[in-house]
Design a protein around this nucleic acid. Structure first.
Lengths: 234, 234
DNA sequence: GAGTAAGTGGAGGGTCTCGTCCACTTATGA
DNA sequence: TCATAAGTGGACGAGACCCTCCACTTACTC
């Protein structure tokens, strides 16, 4: 085995931030991620890979070389948003008023969920490909329980409130995400307000006013059937 | 043009209940509808048509002959459930206690939504192929507004309650429908209770107890990515 | 400026689903 | 029992998408 002097630097970190990519490759990677965010937000995370490639002005092969599976692309595309959620968590833990911290946290997360359809899917799917996901989740679970406990101890949550109600709330909000953001956002805010008023241990006899009602009527529910439209027949 | 004596009866009603089908055809139609309900509930309304046909023990052509488009099949398959909802509406209108009527109506509808994933999709999509849909919807809208107004007049709903909040509630519940029924059903009940307590005009200082919390934690949110899985590569 | 390996694009084979066509089967009525 | 038209099943062409392969291009090093 001949010793070949390698010209490459010793590849400092084989982590997830590939710093040793060639300049053009790095540039393309970014373009793909941008395109993915746009396409996924508009057409859902099951949009054709070729659509993402086209939007990025890149061949399909380039896309697959960088992100071998769809999940890898999806995960990478929404890492930033995920970081936002994580930092919101930190803030909530640091808030001296646990009830307020919890409310603010959920409002932030729900706003993100409802604004970006792609992210909603990813968040709800638990992006199983994300390396740190299991650790992340266990940690989140624990911290959330702690947050809830603190709020309940402070007399800010009713006795029979359960940590599962947080999941319940997230699922409920995700149901709004199919609507266009200009509807979904006020809807989410109003839903959160309703729920938080119910979560309170000692509701005031005259409940606080609600944020404005979303522009929703029964016809506003229209969500297109996920029909497999092959060819339009003549 | 020779006058051919037609042996067929004068085709009494060309409506949607094809009574003039041959016996075996009518039988097959029913089998297809049963299969469709099962397959759609299990795999969503975008399951392959061939899967429905196979399950019904019928060729694809038979299926397409009876239901030329997927929407037609979907609509027909869930007509019964729709009728249940409609009759629940009637009951609600007839209830002398408007608040109770409204609550019962929503509980019934939500239970159906959350129990049958196929129906949830159809309901939320507004099944645009259903002939009477537009009429139906306008009518529903009107009756719902009436119901809400009655309940508010009776002092059972808070002043700032809006009819749009009904849509909000339905969307929220539809977010639970992705969970398996044994989770989604208690979740829906609990969500409804929370919301109704918030809807009340004069909440008691000590809110009524909640139904049991659903078995949900953050990992329970896991919803599979709608990934386009083509071929498993070796 | 030249050598080289990393990077790239697009063609193409494979798979899945759609929806139609047509030769065969079967219920129905005389 | 038989004639007949309604009904049926499976094959099949078309289209969408997945993902890999390979000849070509380009950034980087000396």
């Amino acid at each position: 085995m001949p010793d070949q002097p390698s010209h490459k630097p010793p590849s400092p970190a084989a982590g997830e931030a590939p710093a040793e990519l060639r300049a053009d490759a790095r540039r393309n990677r970014e373009r793909v991620l941008d395109a993915a965010r746009e396409v996924f937000a508009a057409r859902g995370v099951d949009a054709p890979m070729s659509a993402v490639a086209r939007r990025a002005g890149v061949g399909v092969a380039t896309l697959y070389r960088r992100f071998p599976t769809r999940s890898a692309l999806v995960t990478a595309a929404f890492e930033d948003q995920l970081a936002v959620c994580a930092s919101a968590f930190e803030e909530a833990m640091a808030d001296p008023n646990p009830g307020h911290g919890l409310y603010t946290l959920l409002e932030k997360v729900c706003t993100t969920l409802v604004t970006d359809h792609g992210f909603e899917t990813v968040f709800m799917a638990g992006f199983p490909e994300a390396l740190h996901y299991d650790r992340e989740r266990a940690c989140a679970e624990e911290r959330l329980a702690h947050l809830v406990q603190r709020a309940r101890d402070a007399g800010q949550l009713r006795e029979d409130f359960a940590p599962a109600d947080i999941s319940l709330l997230l699922l409920a909000v995700s149901g709004l995400a199919a609507q266009p953001p200009e509807t979904a956002l006020p809807a989410a805010r109003r839903l959160l307000t309703y729920l938080f008023q119910s979560f309170q241990a000692h509701p005031p006899s005259r409940p606080a006013p609600l944020p404005p009602a979303p522009p929703l009527d029964l016809s506003g529910l229209h969500r297109p059937l996920p029909v497999r439209t092959a060819t339009v027949r003549p």
